[in-house]
């Protein structure tokens, strides 16, 4: 995947597809600006799974410092985090 040309919308569509399949939920279950944990979509292990997904699909490892609510607090925040990070690596 050429991560330099990917748009935020493409990142979001791919992330939502991953979440729906990996955590077997419907798209309608996911509230884009709410915490995936607070809304019961994932548990704490789900955060590890999303980190692995990012590494596999966007080629960077999420550091201990990056794993926080600011970056992982909702789908929109995760998308922003991926988008920002791939533009700086």
């Amino acid at each position: 995947m050429n991560t330099l040309t990917i748009t935020k919308n493409e990142i979001q569509v791919a992330l939502l597809d991953f979440l729906c399949r990996q955590f077997y939920v419907d798209l309608d279950d996911i509230i884009l600006d709410k915490s995936l944990i607070d809304t019961g979509i994932i548990d704490s292990m789900g955060l590890i799974e999303i980190s692995s997904y990012i590494k596999k699909n966007y080629g960077f490892t999420v550091t201990k410092e990056q794993m926080n609510r600011q970056n992982f607090g909702s789908v929109l925040k995760i998308v922003d985090f991926i988008d920002t990070t791939i533009k700086t690596i």
Partner: peptide, 20 residues
């Protein structure tokens, strides 16, 4: 038994603690 993409991972206790 475990999610397929967690064969190995580095612990991050503080962040996981928040979710726990």
């Amino acid at each position: 038994q475990i999610p397929s993409n967690t064969i190995y991972y580095q612990n991050n206790y503080e962040f996981l603690e928040e979710s726990r």
